[in-house]
Design a protein around this nucleic acid. Sequence first.
DNA 1: AAATTTACCTAACAGTGTTAGCAAAGTTAA
DNA 2: TTAACTTTGCTAACACTGTTAGGTAAATTT
Lengths: 198, 198
Amino acid sequence: MSVAERKLREKEMIRKKIIDAALQLVKNEGWESLSIRKIADAIEYSAPVIYDHFANKEAILFEISQDGFKLLLSNIHKAISKKASPREELKALVDTYWKFALKNRSYFKLMFGVGMPCCGEGKMKTEFGALQDIIYEIIKKIIVEKKTNIESACYKTHAFWSAIHGFTSIMIARSADVPQTMNVSVLDQMVVNIIENL
Amino acid sequence: MSVAERKLREKEMIRKKIIDAALQLVKNEGWESLSIRKIADAIEYSAPVIYDHFANKEAILFEISQDGFKLLLSNIHKAISKKASPREELKALVDTYWKFALKNRSYFKLMFGVGMPCCGEGKMKTEFGALQDIIYEIIKKIIVEKKTNIESACYKTHAFWSAIHGFTSIMIARSADVPQTMNVSVLDQMVVNIIENL
DNA sequence: AAATTTACCTAACAGTGTTAGCAAAGTTAA
DNA sequence: TTAACTTTGCTAACACTGTTAGGTAAATTT
């Protein structure tokens, strides 16, 4: 059965090549100018071959955005693991979130793009959920530490995520036109303030 | 010179028809499936006529998103004008922002879509700025009232907007998949909390 | 009434996502 | 080893997309 295995491996290789080429194209030219034919060109196959691996173009974007979530979550876990206190964890999480958006605009746009075809409509339920859970657990720890109202943990999770995601989104959306008054120190101060009031 | 005037009026009419038809199509089928030919069909002209009024498709989307900003700002001004205290003004602003996003998803996506071709790159500088200024003025008033640190007004404006925009964006992006724990009362509570800590 | 401008159309170009159908290669069975 | 079958990957095509060129007929000006 080694032949079948090799074939499977080869198929997996092409699949990976498609995703890699697509991501590279998106990084260079933006997701709006990504085309099946360009991907096909990049991997040196004809266009229809791509449909042996993906149902359609949207499925490719979907998979890329899922990879983005995996990367973000992995980055966050790595950053958090080094920290001693939940407050430091929360700060590290925000720092990672922000740096991820800045360094991986393509990923970020695909993952959180408001009008994006691949996110929304419940498709990213687990990915969004995972992120939310991490925040929730840290906030709960801080609340326990501070002995404030534990029942507010859920609300505070949403509020916290809203704040950091809103800041990041505005920064990415406005890109060139961000006023100087809105810089990373604003984000830092926001986190400090939120922690104070948890 | 009445002929020229009539011609100008007629041209303006067609221009308006294009925008109206485009907006209607976007509302019905989403901005991603909007096409020049569909607009042309809707206004009962051939496709190239549209290029007598707009440089390209992007220009149409750009104008629509500008209309969206005008509508949002007008709604906010209307809502604020009825309120007596700056705290009430801020609450009304958030309420209007949220309701606008909910009722005009198409507009909202065009205006704030992270990967949107028409926003970003400094194109919406004045529109973003106007919105920011309104928030800034209200927050300044509250700070004066509370006699807290006035120098923090700028930072607090960004923090405030980040929070409400983040909340709204997540709600719109996740659409069907918003957890029940993240509802409008979270937004209300957020505003109350922020005002408390201004 | 003639000349000129404007309005508008059809046809076309180059590109898009996607599918059908075929040929060659690789794999399995007799 | 040969015959049957499966997989692989191609070309060609369909129905779209944004956009431009070029021509015609109508409206306006001289």
